[in-house]
Design a protein around this nucleic acid. Sequence first.
DNA 1: TATTGTTATACTCTATAACTATA
DNA 2: TATAGTTATAGAGTATAACAATA
Lengths: 163, 163
Amino acid sequence: MPPRKGRADDKAKLDSTVEAANGISVGNLSNHIGYLLRRAQVAVFQDFVRTLGKLDIRPSQFGILSVIEANPGLKQSQVSSALGMQRTNFVIVFDELERRGLAERVSIASDRRSYALHLTDAGRTLMRQAEKALEAHQRRLKDKLGEDGCARLLAMLSSLAEL
Amino acid sequence: MPPRKGRADDKAKLDSTVEAANGISVGNLSNHIGYLLRRAQVAVFQDFVRTLGKLDIRPSQFGILSVIEANPGLKQSQVSSALGMQRTNFVIVFDELERRGLAERVSIASDRRSYALHLTDAGRTLMRQAEKALEAHQRRLKDKLGEDGCARLLAMLSSLAEL
DNA sequence: TATTGTTATACTCTATAACTATA
DNA sequence: TATAGTTATAGAGTATAACAATA
């Protein structure tokens, strides 16, 4: 429908990548891992959020709930460190989880500066629902990558995260 | 306020690795592609920015410059679409590139609503410097993933970006 | 002195609505 | 009516500085 006047370079795809809907090449950018990491991360996060829909849980919230469920009683600084977050940014996200009654800060006698973090019953219930819903999300990813491709991708991403 | 300052006193700044930097497991999260995509993307972007250092080019700026250099004369909406950006968010980023004399909007007679985007000589010079500097960045990634691992990762990320 | 949680702040990235000027 | 560029705004995410309470 658009004009689509003759562009001088309908250049070949050296390697097919994120070819824009209008057929414009991003050039050498498609060989940049950082660029494609960002495109993939945005797409996967959007699918994640869409999948959880009515549960209204964002990836960062899900991450925090996961770590707390796997390690009940951790301090805020431990959870945020495990997730690669600044402890300062953890506060507001956790405030919201606590406000929604999904997790809680519990005072501990041994160190009155810190809290032991726990999921509430509502938080555990929500995590079961989320995991159930996310099966569809995971299936879409496996359909794209294959079972073994998925495992290889996880391994490669893990090694990149330690860059 | 100045754009960015050096660090001060935070010694716990070390990136916590994906698994157990402090012995804390993120649980099932390490099987979530979205989570590891984010961790990897942040790490790779940080290495990208650090590598370009004095050139002061962010990934999004580099992406725009790359597309314009590969396709001179495109309109803003075409470039932003190719990069998966909203055209509305493109404006401010390009304003800055133009302010720095790296790229420019050129009026075209055929359609007075739009501009043809081009790199300036300074922009082309900077891209040569950036590509030179980024060789070290690319080498670090290849050291982590291997030559063929790199290619396989690019292919998998491309397919995910179309999710 | 160092750590824990916290507030304040700033910059980037993503997203939507609405405006203008053209087509 | 539709498109191109723009402005305004909002919400996440990431980052640093500084403070009070506690260790």
